[in-house]
Every structure is written in C-alpha cells, then in structure tokens.
Design a protein around this nucleic acid. Structure first.
Length: 225
DNA sequence: GCGACAG
DNA sequence: ATCTTGTCGC
C-alpha cells in the first residue's frame, strides 16, 4: 500500500534520515511475487555537472527480454548529492519517467542499492514503496557492508553483511568482471531478487533491463519521445 | 578520531 | 554520476 510523506522532497538531511528510518519499516520482503510479464529497468544519472537529472526506463517483455517501451525524462536537480541520501536526489525524475509509461511492469530493477543501505532504504527500496511494485537494487559498487571472496563462476554469490544482518548478495554476473551488489528493494526476497537478476543476464555484466536503461540514458543526443 | 561513501 | 581514445581480448 502507498506510504504517506513519500512525496516530500524539501527536507533537511536530518529530516530525510528520520524519514528513511520510518519508511524502512514498511519494506516488504516476500518470497513470491505476482506473475511477471513485463520487467522495467531504471537508470538515473546526471548531466551538466549535476545540474540536470536524467531518468531512463525501459520495459522488457518476459521471458523474451525484448524491449517494449522506453522513456527518458530530464529535469533540474533539486537536491545535492549526499552519500546515503541519493534517493531524494534521483527519485523525482524517476517518478516523472514512470508517469510517461503506458505499461505497468510487475517487476522493476533499479541501478543502485535496495536495502543494502545504512538505514535500509536505498533508491530501489524508496522507489518500490512509492510505486508499490516489487523492486530489486542492482548496484555496481558497494555503499555499506562487508563480504568474503566471490566465487569466479557466473551466477555465484556471497552474502553482503552489515551490523549482523544479510542485506544483499555480491553476485558474479560475468566471469572475470567486478561483481554486482544485489539487494531486495521492496515486495521481494533476496533469493528471488538474485534469481531474477541471473535469469535476466545476457553476455554482459549488467542484467538486460538495467543494461538497456543505461544504454538509453547515455545516448546523449536524443530527447524523450 | 580516521576513513568510507550507491549515483 | 561525468569528463574522455585508444586498445587489448574473447
């Protein structure tokens, strides 16, 4: 169910932190999710030295992984970058991009952390609460937590732990390449999250939904259409 | 007190 | 995140 106060973006860092702690308590982590026919990949980045925020969303069909729809949205950035508060900087643009979609996906993969966050509310979790959809955090680097060696074979993973909890999995998505940091965002379990990421892997490091969103976002010349 | 620190 | 060319390798 929707959570109140998610839409407040004019917060002091202290207020944002307090809000994160409260919202983290609403994250659901069930094993089973509804039947999946559409998977969205989300990538949020910045341009013009951070002045502009750009959100790209690609919807793929499952199980073919064929892209069905894609949108890009740009808007002025409202918040500075503060480690741990990234979602407040990125989500406004992501929501605007989602509003442009005609398809409502059953599963969303987001570039960034889910609950693998100091207060268990990374951008994937925050977005999942807002959209009330199952989300998975697919990060290319670590925010917090520690882990042991990750086996070399594709699909292998090691738990990412923080303050006595398992907050995610460090996944070898491709041989001889730096691993991905996978964590549940909302309405899904870690195991199911890892399953879906592995199932969406092609020949590259990133799963198809995130990879296509990344690629779409970096095509600098085109506007949303 | 000293680092670390998603995008 | 972004600024940026070529280059090594499957």
């Amino acid at each position: 169910m929707p959570v109140a106060a998610l839409h407040d973006w004019n917060l002091t860092p202290e207020e944002a932190i307090a809000l994160q702690k409260r919202l983290a308590g609403s994250i659901e982590r069930q094993d089973r999710i509804d039947p999946v026919r559409h998977i969205a990949g989300v990538d949020i980045g910045f341009e013009e030295g951070g002045e502009m925020t750009r959100a790209a969303v690609v919807v793929l069909s499952w199980p073919t992984l064929a892209p069905l729809e894609q949108v890009v949205h740009r808007e002025p950035t409202r918040m500075p970058y503060v480690p741990g508060l990234l979602s407040f900087r990125e989500i406004p643009a992501a929501l605007a991009a989602f509003a442009l979609l005609t398809t409502r996906p059953e599963l969303v993969m987001v570039d960034g952390q889910g609950i693998a966050h100091p207060r268990r509310l990374g951008v994937a979790s925050h977005l999942g609460l807002w959209l009330d959809l199952p989300t998975i955090g697919v990060a290319k680097s670590r925010l917090c937590g520690s882990y042991g060696e990750v086996p070399e074979a594709k699909g292998e993973w090691t738990p990412l732990r923080h303050r006595g909890e398992t907050i995610g999995g460090v996944l070898r998505s491709r041989l001889a390449v730096k691993p991905l940091y996978i964590s549940l965002g909302h309405r899904i379990s870690l195991e199911t999250s890892l399953d879906w990421v592995v199932r969406c892997l092609g020949r590259t490091k990133l799963p198809e939904p995130t990879r296509l969103a990344d690629r779409l976002a970096s095509r600098r010349d085109e506007k949303s259409r």
